[in-house]
Design a protein around this nucleic acid. Structure first.
Ligand SMILES: [Mn+2]
Ligand SMILES: [Mn+2]
Ligand SMILES: [Mn+2]
Ligand SMILES: [Mn+2]
Lengths: 229, 229
DNA sequence: AATGCAATTTAGGCACACCTAAATTCTGGG
DNA sequence: CCCAGAATTTAGGTGTGCCTAAATTGCATT
């Protein structure tokens, strides 16, 4: 019924640190500060220090780290981070397309399972889905070889009035936001036109697809939407 | 990307201990000895003691335990054990039927994932499979309410010559054994007749289904097969 | 150049689940 | 009844990852 599951090659925590460094550092792979990591991972800064020391002090370090100068991924760390992200996004699509999960629930489930599926299962899921390249929220799925084409997308909240764009992706962290977006028809590939943009905290207004009416979008929503022009 | 996953209600280890106690204790739920648990879980006896103390000393104890007198599940512990077994067997069937896993690989994957899927995912998998009651190896899948009808099955290795039976289940731990059984056509619902049984370590011989020839079965194989007469 | 605060690191601890070695306790023969 | 050997428990440790409190360090701004 059980066996010696001693030490998994990469722990759940390690995976999460690597993903966080990749995400925060962005495509340019800037050095990431401890504070940013602490915020992102919801962990105290002191804990970050300890973990970075460990991750950078291993036989094959996953992180490059010097006191007070932040952290960045080593090639090995980046490889693992992309692998976990591949797991995450394949699982999301799988839950959505095969198990009929609503799109606001897939993220939480994938966030846990991404650490525990085998390479075999990754392969089977990818096959079942036909080696997909996009997850339910429009995010790119890293390929088996770790490649992930860069996107040219901007956050809708940064678009000025008059601009038009196609939704490329939406942030998947907040189920409530995802549900509202779905209701509004704001999903990847939808067309949006910014019809109004006032100063201050007045919500922007957008027209969705071929609609004749425009609707208001609070920052809570607009900042979760990414478009390409 | 991550969050405070502080303490899951039941840890992977806890789940494994509960499953082991249920399995070893059998349907009569005998008290299980520390040694048997140590053997089953591949852990030192001292570790068993510590864990049993913890599991029996909680707010709502999962285990009933008194020094030197072994352990048995409390109702709460049994409920959790059956829930994990339900997860395990649903996952096995799912991997086999939906993801086209070979039947000798499902056990290892399920053994890990059973601890991490949500109730939502359990529900979706069960729905996708049509609320199944039997896993790929012929084991019963506990129902949502925790019920699991008892089986009347005997191990093939205990059958005398001349007896006939229908395979009800096969042990799923050893991939190599499972592969051989599949090759021989020994799967749940197959008909077997014991044609020969000698003393000593001479392998028994069985006829499979309507075959005209009988084949030898070493104890390694016959002890993994359960039949009903 | 000085300083004052924010960011980071160190120190000391905790919970988990495991281990080894060294007690105990129990039990079945004699 | 007694006692050795087996089973179990206790004692003392380890590695992971987290926390709080108490240093440090570095940097922006005078
Ligand atoms: Mn996600
Ligand atoms: Mn996504
Ligand atoms: Mn199994
Ligand atoms: Mn099974």
């Amino acid at each position: 019924m059980a066996k010696k599951s001693t030490t998994r090659a990469n722990s759940e925590s390690t995976d999460d640190y690597l993903k966080a460094i990749l995400t925060i550092g962005g495509p340019q792979e800037d050095r990431v500060t401890g504070n940013a990591l602490a915020e992102h991972l919801q962990v105290r800064p002191a804990s970050i220090t300890g973990m970075l020391q460990k991750l950078s002090g291993q036989e094959t370090p996953l992180v490059e780290y010097e006191k007070h100068r932040g952290a960045r991924l080593t090639p090995a760390g980046k490889r693992r981070a992309l692998e976990v992200i591949r797991h995450h996004r394949l699982i999301e699509l799988f839950l959505h397309d095969i198990l009929d999960y609503p799109w606001d629930e897939v993220h939480a489930e994938a966030e846990r399972l991404e650490h525990f599926i085998s390479e075999r299962m990754e392969e089977r899921i990818a096959a079942k889905l036909g080696d997909p390249l996009i997850d339910p929220h429009g995010h790119g799925i890293p390929r088996k070889d770790g490649s992930l084409p860069e996107r040219r997308e901007v956050c809708l909240s940064e678009l000025a009035a008059g601009n038009t764009g196609v939704v490329t992706s939406v942030s998947d962290r907040r189920p409530d936001v995802l549900r509202e977006l779905k209701n509004l028809g704001i999903v990847p590939r939808a067309h949006l036109t910014v019809t109004e943009r006032r100063a201050g905290s007045r919500p922007m207004r957008v027209r969705i697809g071929p609609a004749s009416q425009d609707i208001p979008l609070t920052v809570r929503l607009s900042s979760a939407i990414y478009v390409s022009q």
